[in-house]
Design a protein around this nucleic acid. Sequence first.
RNA 1: GCGAAAGUGGCGGAAUUGGUAGACGCGCUAGACUUAGGAUCUAGUCCCGAAAAGGGGUGGGGGUUCGAGUCCCCCCUUUCGCACCA
Length: 821
Amino acid sequence: MRSAERDVVTYEPTEVEAKWQRRWESDGLYNSDVDAERPKHYALTMLPYPSGEFHIGHWYAMAPPDARARYMRLKGYNVLFPMGFDAFGLPAENAAIQRGVHPRKWTYSNIERMRGQFKRMGTMIDWRREAISADREYYRWTQWFFLKLLENDLAYRNRAAVDWCPSCNTTLAREQVWGDDRRCERCQTPVVRKELEQWFFRTTRFADELLDFSQIDWPERVQLLEKNWIGRSEGADVVFHTESGDPLRVFTTRPDTLWGATFMVLAPEHPLVAKLTTQDQARAVEEYTAQAERQTDIQREAADRPKTGVFTGAYAINPVTDERIPIWIADYVLMTYGTGAIMAVPAHDQRDFEFARQFDLEVRPVIQASGEDVPDGDELLAATTHQGTMVNSGPLTGTPADEAVTAAIDFLQEKGTGRGAIRYRLRDWLISRQRYWGAPIPVVYCDRCGVVPVSESELPVPLPDDVEWTPTGESPLKLHPTWRHTSCPECGAPAERETDTMDTFMCSSWYHLRYLSPHYDAGPFDPEEYAYWMPVDSYTGGIEHATMHLIYTRFFHKACHDMGIVGGTEPMLQLRNQGIVLGEDSEKMSKSRGNVVSPDDLVERYGADTVRSYMMFFARWEQGGPWNSRGIEGTWRWLKKIWTLMLEPTEEFTAEPGVERRLRRKVHQTLRQVGEDFETYEFNTIVAALMELSNEMHQARADGAAGGDAWDEACDIYLRMLAPIAPHIAEELWERLGKDYSVHTSTWPQVDAAAAAEDEVTLVVQVNGKVRDRLVVPVDIADETAREMALASEGALRFTDGKTVRKVIVVPGRLVNIVAN
RNA sequence: GCGAAAGUGGCGGAAUUGGUAGACGCGCUAGACUUAGGAUCUAGUCCCGAAAAGGGGUGGGGGUUCGAGUCCCCCCUUUCGCACCA
């Protein structure tokens, strides 16, 4: 009966998938709860922005990690695989402006749609733990964290020149300004600089901690990007003085070359410029400064542009030589790095060299390369950076160059004119945004009391729904008729709310904590959940967040650690990055190019299991690559073949023992490989291995193995291995083979090492490194036997004939190389 | 300019980390079965060679080694990040 029925059943993914998705949901199969008895595994994938539609990149980012989380579950871990939405942000507001839909409505209906797409993907997400950053119960705690940072002097307000996107009408963090032409990360509009009073977080205070990756397993590439971004430089702060006595601080990585400093250069915006400029230079300086100011708005152009600058008319005293050296201003010195002023050593710094040649300033070498004469500064063609010995350097003269930096610092410290110092490229994180759709900054301005934090019991400071969001450059909250008016939490007098909202990266800096207990209202997270689940064991997402989210979230966690809010110092122990799925034309997918692949269409045509499997198979996951619309056919065929392979009526069992032994060997070898590849995120070879095994099973069936014990074992193990990858078809076949629900709550099989072991190997016979024969021999063949068999093999004899065997190398159980001439 | 990663069949990609290069899949070729197929099945598919024998082959050139896709040096190309950071 049953087999007759099986005969006609064809694989209908749509039916199978809908059936099991309903069942799993009603059974709460993917609920994860604290269970002290079992080891935990927190698998986290970067939360999506609810843009409206799932694109294929979402599948690529989500499906393989989902498979891995499922694998960990089968391995016996209590797995938490949560999901949520990074729901505040500009696109919602832009949609509102363009289409007149309220950002809230736009965002939440997108979430609705995308949640449905997630469910169709067949993920093991525990939706009870969903967190949405635009929910009041979420941003209440985002605001709470802001207050904590403020309380602990990790948040501050400052008037500073900040990057402003004229199209998004808001300030941007340094990290959100991209490229050499300084464009807005979101809309590509060139940014301008504005002087504004803004909120910052003290990320720079954590620079060294952020550079320490010793406790976490993050890709080298990410570490490097972050190291470059943080840009730590060791050197010295040196105090020069102007002739009129004003201190002029510089930072240098080369204090050893101080004796070669023949002039100084200030950034045009340097505060001392106006004061020290002499009467007769005033006009030139003003003109240059005005021009530089205009230029910063575009950008100060490429590095290979000729140097420009103007003499201020003033002089400084070189603290080590007591010489009088001219002070210039030039736009190659940036106000935003170091102190905005440099000592120029043209003999040993190429930029200073170019400047000196441009304006005919003295070039004085202070390092002599070993075995060479001291070069004449006037004749140098470029700055020299070689090692050697210090010359013309007062007490340092004669010091080997590699000891000179330390010696110079010691000398400065003794003299009291400088000390060792470390500078970073990293800036403090600017978090103010002049936009509506974000978490309001919970601060009130009172004429009498100044900046007053909203008290915790008053949180959240709610975002009003009735706003005009015409972009004006001011926060829409400022234009609201009543919202900003409040009373001072301290003195009760009329006061005004901060009308800026927070950068959405603030929301996403702690979402992994909110997942632990999204509805908890005694704190941002339930400490019990934290104690069990944190830290995140496996974090996956795109590398584009290396210098943004990933720096912010670690800063955030470390700050919370220092404030006693969390116990650990690292939020995510392991990080892995998926690559990018390109269009079939190998270009980035975009609507304008028309090369966008819609996952919904694929799911409709092939089913979620095929799409999931193909996501794992089609490229090396960490690398990504161009889409191939024909390639998915192969994966689709594979699943169909498995279906028939397992459901075809069983013929008579006629297999010889060798067939079963071979089948079992392949099964257990595959099992071993699949397990290893899951550990290392090598998803493509997992699917390849399973394809190989199904080919082998096909052969075994042809050889009459179906119905035997080895066959049954093969099916059983196969389905458990398939379950993480293609959860629906695995569950369906599991049921049809009469096994207990659910395959997803079963266990990962044990490798039978004896079954996996080969009893024969192909011994490669080489003569002078070239393969001349292949012999099938017992796996445990003695080296001496192998050697003799190799020497006697037909292929070897043909090539050793008439030659003398000089040497024979035996690689046990693998290869024999005969050296003969 | 600085830093990093990567170059393997027509294509995506394997290769136990120094030991049979090209697993698996796409595509292609031939055949079978079908009213038909863009379904399914079988066989083949790195290049030269009719075939066998053999030879060549992992961007290019050198080197180390019994043996190199893998290690070292030089060069080329591509991609990414930073970009006058003192």
